[in-house]
Write a protein that binds this DNA or RNA. Structure first.
Length: 568
DNA sequence: GCCGTTTTCGGCCCGACTGTTTTCAGTCG
């Protein structure tokens, strides 16, 4: 008898242990070990329980002998005696209160100790004034109350384009100030993570106090959370937080470097720097012995001083890029200008908003060399009419080639939604899952591989089927699917649509190991969507993808060799 | 509690801001 725990549940459990250790004033490095293990599990592409079953837990970084032992106990007995002892005397409401910004483990503990039963109860007790006492001053409670308000207004994370739009508004406002020399995004936004929790912005200026005051006066501000000499945080009316970091222009490179990488990237860089005798921060790179400070206007110089190849922001996640940069073996990442055409788009024949003609004209205006119109496999569709229309467009002009494509549903019984005779009349057929997302891993893997076995099928689109902030992706044996795709020349799509961003970056890295060929597509359902390539490119770069691994970097003439296009 | 091009012990990234703090703890990124 074994007990099941998802990666998310496991990382939450370890984070809770870390929180209680903080309350109990345990060794800070022990606390960090638990947090690092939680991060590692949360970001793992493999199911931790499956790894445990295979006896491969030691492949997970951050899981040492002790933690592997605890997980072993957890999976076999359903609980861990050591953890139960740790949690003894700790009200479980502590963990709910931690969701409020500004409340950490110690404050959460003090609040539950004072009888608080959760977030709603906390708000009520603050309003009634029953919490006011020495350890919770008026100011502290006002701050917490504002934090609760923001928690209720905002969703956990927002999609990258939404964050970018908000950030652009702030940056445009900042750039109007005469003392602002430069302004950029930082953090997860600059790394182009598909969902973003808050917005970080950098400014180069000789007059930080003036800029910070100006920032706090931004029209969409709900409240100023904090503001000091060189940084400030505001909460917008939407509940979203914006952090500002200011440094003089001669330290702007150091600032960008300090606040772009993930927490673990930064820790690794600074540890590595220490071994070389440097202390790295946004105030410069200091030679520990002499105290000499290196200031840089460009962040490239920081990495150069440390003897590292420059890692593009998208790579700075501590997933091997620091090691690769040490050996100067970072990949040459694909760029937006490398893409020659789009291989996944829809028209008004199915659920697209524009006609084929309109889609083609827009694609041509965007300098695409080709576009595949891949409408859904609706059983009642007039396929001959659609094919004829595409052929006529190709006949009438030679500026852009239109590829007759389809996006075919894979039925739950592994068959395809339409017969082979229809597929055979098209030049590019993608398959995808649009129903029954919750099959077992084994069933789903079989379903996808059966579909890819069809000789008329060229590739798999939006492979995991995830919808960010809405729906988890399917469970499947990706290693098996990637191996099959690589062996039989089937393409795995990187879907640019921001709420899909599918494959996820870590699975792209997995797929690369099997030498899978990708396509980067927009999945456009409207002419405006044809511009979404940048998000697919960003995702591919986060997955370390190079130009040569993506088939639609090829010109039409070379593409024909790969997908056997019929002459039309 | 983890980990190793200073390996099985002794280290473990760096700093800003707030509150009420006269030197620091808590929180955050």
């Amino acid at each position: 008898m074994a007990f099941s725990f998802s990666n998310k549940q496991l990382s939450e459990l370890l984070r809770n242990v870390a929180a209680v250790y903080q309350i109990k004033n345990k060794n800070q490095f022990q606390i960090r070990a638990y947090e690092l293990a939680a991060d590692s599990i949360e970001h793992s592409t493999s199911d931790i329980k499956t790894l445990w079953e295979l006896g491969e837990l030691d492949s997970v970084p951050g899981l040492g002998e002790s933690l592997r032992g605890y997980l072993d106990e957890l999976f076999s007995k359903g609980k861990v005696k050591h953890f139960d002892e740790i949690f003894e005397g700790i009200d479980k409401n502590v963990f709910e209160l931690l969701k409020i910004a500004g409340i950490g483990p110690k404050t959460a503990f003090k609040l539950t100790d004072a009888g608080v039963k959760g977030i709603a109860d906390l708000e009520e007790k603050i309003d009634r004034g029953t919490l006011l006492r020495k350890e919770f001053s008026e100011k502290v409670l006002t701050n917490i109350k504002a934090g609760i308000g923001e928690y209720k207004r905002k969703s956990d994370r927002i999609l990258l384009p939404v964050a970018q739009e908000t950030a652009l508004g702030v940056i445009k406002y900042l750039e109007k100030h005469p003392k602002v020399k430069k302004a950029d995004t930082l953090g997860s936004l600059r790394r182009m993570v598909s969902t973003v929790g808050d917005i970080d912005i950098s400014v180069a200026s000789e007059a930080p106090e003036e800029v910070i005051k100006y920032f706090c006066d931004y029209s969409l501000v709900d409240r100023v959370v904090e503001s000091g000499d060189k940084t400030a945080t505001i909460a917008l009316k939407t509940g979203l937080r914006v952090d500002l970091m200011v440094q003089p222009p001669e330290l702007y490179g150091n600032l960008l470097q300090h606040f772009t990488g993930s927490k673990n990237h930064n820790i690794k860089i600074r540890s590595l720097a220490l071994k070389k005798g440097y202390s790295v921060s946004d105030n410069g790179v200091t030679e520990v012995k002499s105290g000499r400070v290196h200031k840089f206007t460009e962040e490239e110089s920081v990495y150069k001083l440390l003897g590292l190849q420059f890692p593009s922001p998208e790579l700075r996640e501590d997933t091997g890029e620091v090691e690769a940069a040490t050996e100067h073996k970072l990949p040459t990442l694909i760029r937006p200008t490398d893409l020659k055409g789009d291989l996944h788009t829809h028209s008004s024949y199915t659920d697209g908003k524009n006609t084929i003609q309109e889609m083609v004209e827009s694609a041509q205006n965007l300098d695409r060399e080709y576009i595949a119109i891949t409408d859904h496999s609706y059983p009642n569709l007039d396929y001959s009419k659609r094919i004829k229309e595409i052929e006529q467009i190709n006949y009438s002009q030679d500026k852009i080639r239109v590829i007759k494509g389809l996006e075919v549903n894979i039925n739950v019984d592994t068959t395809l939604q339409i017969p082979d005779e229809i597929l055979a009349k098209h030049d590019f057929n993608l398959v995808s899952i649009h129903t029954s997302f919750r099959q077992t891993e084994k069933e789903m893997t079989n379903r996808i591989i059966r579909a890819l076995e069809n000789k008329y099928v060229n590739g798999l689109s939006h492979p995991t089927g995830r919808l960010l902030l809405e729906r988890e992706g399917i469970e499947a044996d990706w290693a098996k699917i990637f191996k099959f795709a690589a062996d039989y020349g089937k393409i795995i799509e990187i879907n640019s649509f921001p709420n899909r961003s599918d494959l996820p970056d870590l699975l792209i890295r997995e797929a690369k190991k099997y030498k899978v060929k990708f396509s980067i597509d927009t999945d456009a359902h409207h002419v405006d969507h044809l511009k979404l390539f940048d998000y697919g490119i960003a995702l591919a770069r986060r997955g370390w993808v190079e130009k040569t691994e993506v088939i639609n970097t090829l010109p039409y003439s070379k593409l024909e060799d790969i997908i056997n296009l019929s002459k039309n």
